[in-house]
């Protein structure tokens, strides 16, 4: 673990460092179709600074890291090859759903019967649906950046309200690195399409963060479907003729408005208003 008073601060680990990493990687790769590697790099920077980058024993939380790396790797490979498969987003969403069952099996098997089946199918369905919703944004960097920002903040804030600092940091890291890419697009006045590299990474990471907060902390189950509204909000009307700044501002307003809903669900559940 890297250690210094500044680097030990959660705001630096989860926010400042991933933002800077996102800016550096995004600018370095701005002329390629892989600038959105910045999202997984920002996440890895957070893990390194917080000392959470380890894989033994392979707990559910560590499988989430592996799944995020796998999603980024798969996205890079797909964007490099560009296979002409129409059903690729659906296949990737189904793979994200199946992988969610593998990621969380060690937690799910502590439950029995209907509770096991319900939690397993619910988590898999949620991961697949959220990943599919983010993949729909893969050609529009502004929409995808806003979705990453909104989802990261929603998952992170809902995480801390559900007593999980680890997933607060994870969510904020995705928000910060997505925000960095949003900023680069506004300043450079160009669209950096996230492709599968960015969209698959954001979809898998944020859906698994939310599922982990539900299974390993205290996030209520009914907050999960509300997260899907965030990428759907990023799909709302956003004319191509607008400036990048105006598109980014309006898209961010859309997603932050939607992000309030799962946060409120976590907040009210924490205050016992649903029990």
């Amino acid at each position: 673990m890297i250690s210094s008073p500044w680097l030990d601060h959660p705001a630096v680990q989860g926010g400042v460092a991933p933002l800077l990493a996102g800016l550096i990687v995004g600018l370095l790769l701005i002329r390629t179709r892989f600038a959105w590697i910045a999202v997984v790099v920002g996440y890895l920077v957070m893990l390194t600074l917080s000392g959470d980058l380890a894989f033994e024993p392979l707990t559910a939380s560590r499988k989430v890291v592996l799944a995020g790396l796998g999603a980024a790797g798969a996205g890079i490979a797909i964007d490099a090859i560009r296979p002409p498969y129409r059903w690729l987003p659906a296949i990737l969403s189904a793979a994200a759903a199946l992988a969610a069952a593998w990621v969380f099996i060690s937690v799910l098997r502590q439950r029995e019967g209907a509770a096991f089946v319900g939690a397993m199918s619910g988590v898999a369905l949620f991961a697949g649906a959220l990943t599919a919703a983010v993949l729909r944004l893969r050609d529009d960097g502004i929409r995808a950046g806003a979705a990453g920002l909104g989802l990261g903040l929603a998952v992170g804030i809902a995480g801390i309200l559900s007593a999980s600092i680890g997933y607060l940091l994870g969510g904020v890291a995705v928000a910060a690195s997505s925000g960095a890419l949003l900023l680069i697009q506004v300043v450079a006045r160009q669209n950096l399409a996230p492709g599968y590299t960015g969209a698959l990474t954001i979809g898998v990471l944020t859906s698994y963060f939310a599922a982990a907060t539900f299974l390993l902390a205290s996030l209520p189950w009914f907050a999960l479907p509300l997260f899907i509204l965030v990428p759907l909000a990023a799909s709302l009307r956003l004319p191509e003729t607008w400036s990048q700044f105006a598109r980014a501002a309006v898209a961010s307003a859309y997603v932050l408005g939607a992000a309030v809903l799962p946060i409120l669900a976590a907040w009210y559940a924490a205050r016992g208003l649903f029990t």
Binding site: A163, I165, L215, L216, A217
Partner: peptide, 13 residues
């Protein structure tokens, strides 16, 4: 409640 989460004892897993 925080001690029971994955940040500490990870009681669910």
């Amino acid at each position: 409640e925080h001690l029971r989460t994955a940040d500490f004892f990870n009681a669910a897993e």
